[in-house]
Design a protein around this nucleic acid. Structure first.
Lengths: 129, 129
DNA sequence: CCTTTACTCTACCCTAAGGGGAAAGTGTAT
DNA sequence: ATACACTTTCCCCTTAGGGTAGAGTAAAGG
């Protein structure tokens, strides 16, 4: 099938599918005379797999790893779990950073009257030495 | 003072300071004969201000807004608080997304034995239609 | 005065993951 | 033959700078 159908079936945009072909993630045959990419059902399955992994916030590089484990029938579940746990710990660290940030900002906001006068503790904090 | 000292005093890199000059955020005079940028104490204060705002996760555009409020002695604290509250709500929405993601991933990981066998619920989930 | 060393300049390419659009070719239906 | 849908490659754009090259400038030492 052509790229339009492959994109529709995998719920990706054509741009995204073409990008994955360019970086060698899912590289379909290309018709010699027309140059059109020709996707197999298996390739569409890979596209779907990547789409799901991307929704789980895996980077393209991580998707590449996961995809090769997906294709490797001799993989161990240990390898897959390792990548997943790493991603969880990345998320945890981002969560902590964001929580800290939120606390600081909300402390600043709570101290600001938010009225029509110019004096503002938020500006003061940002101006502090 | 030259850019090196300005960068040191503001705890920014030279690249960053030069970038801010290029985008017109903090644009010092430039010596005509040498081309060297010449920073005043006031400009260094602005750089520090921006550095702090950036640490609070404000984008460059938001910094531009904050900086103009910082310079405007007729500002109202209402305006500053508004930007801050918007940033907090952006952070909240990111926090929610990340928490959801973490739950899903940790559910997947907890169902995966993580042993030497190839069958893996994580891969299964990513392969689901 | 000359040289070394430190500092600065502009200009270019790079990041992640595509999005937008142009210009040109291809496929199909009427 | 023509209209319309689909696809191709190519190029620029996004954030907030980082890295490097080549060249010019400033200050210190001999």
């Amino acid at each position: 099938m052509n790229i339009g159908k492959a994109a529709k079936l995998s719920n990706l945009t054509i741009k995204t599918v073409r990008y994955y072909a360019n970086i060698g993630l899912v590289k379909p045959e290309q018709n010699i005379s027309s140059g059109y990419r020709e996707y197999t059902d298996e390739e569409v399955a890979k596209l779907k797999f990547i789409g799901k992994a991307r929704k789980f916030d895996f980077s393209i590089d991580e998707c590449k790893e996961l995809l090769s484990l997906y294709e490797d029938k001799n993989r161990t579940s240990k390898e897959v779990k390792k990548i997943t746990l790493e991603k969880i710990s990345q998320i945890d660290s981002k969560l902590n950073d964001l929580k800290d940030l939120r606390n600081e900002l909300s402390f600043l906001a709570s101290n600001c009257h938010g009225d029509d006068k110019p004096n503002c503790p938020i500006i003061d904090e940002l101006s502090k030495n």
